[in-house]
C-alpha cells in the first residue's frame, strides 16, 4: 500500500496555489494549471513510445532494423516438433483435405491452377509452366515428393518452407492426390465421350 506521506504535493505546486497579494491570484493560478494540463494532454507523447514494434527502426542494430538476422546455429525451441511433423505424414482425413485445399488455393493456385493442371494466372502472365499433376510421373510420385518440393523448391519454383508449415505441406500433398483422382475421373469421362 502506498502511504500518503510517500507522495507529498510538489513544493512548486504548493507555492503556486497558496497565498498571493492580488485577490484573484489563486483563481488565476488554478486556471493556469488547468491550461497546463490541457496542453500536456494535447502532446500525446505516448503515441510514439521508445519501444520496438515489429518492423520498426532500431539504430542499435544492423541495418537500423528491429528485426534481426537469427545468429548462425540457432535452434528454434519447436524445431524437434517441426522436424517430426515434416517426417511423419499425418492421417489423411476430411479435415486434413480441407486444410490442404485452403493452403493449396493460397500458395499453389497462382501457378499450378485450381485444378492442378499447371495453368495458373501467373503462368498465363509468362511464368514458365509447371507440369500438370495429371502427368503419369507425378501420379506415381509419393506424397513425400510433393512435401519435398514445397520444402526445397524445384526448378524455377522457390522453396515455400518459410510460408507453409510442415503439417500443411502434407495437407497440400494429400489435396494434390485428391486433385489427381478428380482429374482421372474427368479423363475417364473424356475417354467415354471419345469412345462413343
Amino acid at each position: 500500500m502506498r502511504q500518503p506521506s510517500d507522495s507529498p504535493p510538489a513544493p512548486a505546486l504548493v507555492a503556486l496555489l497558496s497565498g498571493g497579494q492580488w485577490p484573484c491570484a489563486r483563481a488565476a493560478r488554478i486556471l493556469a494549471l488547468l491550461l497546463c494540463a490541457g496542453l500536456v494532454s494535447a502532446c500525446n507523447d505516448m503515441v510514439e513510445q521508445p519501444k520496438l514494434k515489429p518492423y520498426s527502426s532500431a539504430e542499435a542494430f544492423d541495418q537500423n532494423a528491429e528485426a534481426r538476422a537469427i545468429p548462425f546455429g540457432t535452434v528454434a525451441r519447436d524445431e524437434p516438433e517441426r522436424i517430426a511433423a515434416l517426417r511423419t505424414p499425418p492421417k489423411v482425413d476430411a479435415a486434413l483435405l480441407d486444410r490442404g485445399r485452403a493452403q493449396y488455393e493460397i500458395y499453389c493456385t497462382p501457378c499450378h491452377g485450381l485444378a492442378g493442371r499447371g495453368d495458373g494466372i501467373i503462368v498465363e502472365r509468362g511464368f514458365p509452366p509447371p507440369p500438370s499433376y495429371m502427368e503419369p510421373r507425378l501420379r506415381a510420385a509419393p506424397a513425400e515428393h510433393f512435401v519435398d518440393v514445397i520444402t526445397n523448391g524445384w526448378g524455377v519454383m522457390y522453396s515455400y518452407a518459410a510460408r507453409v508449415e510442415p503439417r500443411d505441406r502434407w495437407a497440400i500433398a494429400a489435396y494434390i492426390r485428391a486433385l489427381q483422382l478428380a482429374g482421372a475421373g474427368e479423363m475417364a469421362d473424356a475417354g467415354g465421350e471419345a469412345g462413343r
Binding site: 493460397i106 524455377v156 518459410a162 510460408r163
Partner: peptide, 26 residues
C-alpha cells in the same frame, strides 16, 4: 500468400524480398 502470419500472429507480416522474387525471378 504474402501476409503469411495474419492467422497466427499479432502482426500480419510483410513479405520478405524472396516472396516478390518467387514470381519476379522469372
Amino acid at each position: 500468400y504474402c501476409h503469411t502470419q495474419v492467422e497466427k500472429a499479432a502482426f500480419a507480416g510483410l513479405p520478405p524480398t524472396e516472396t516478390c522474387m518467387t514470381c519476379h525471378s522469372q
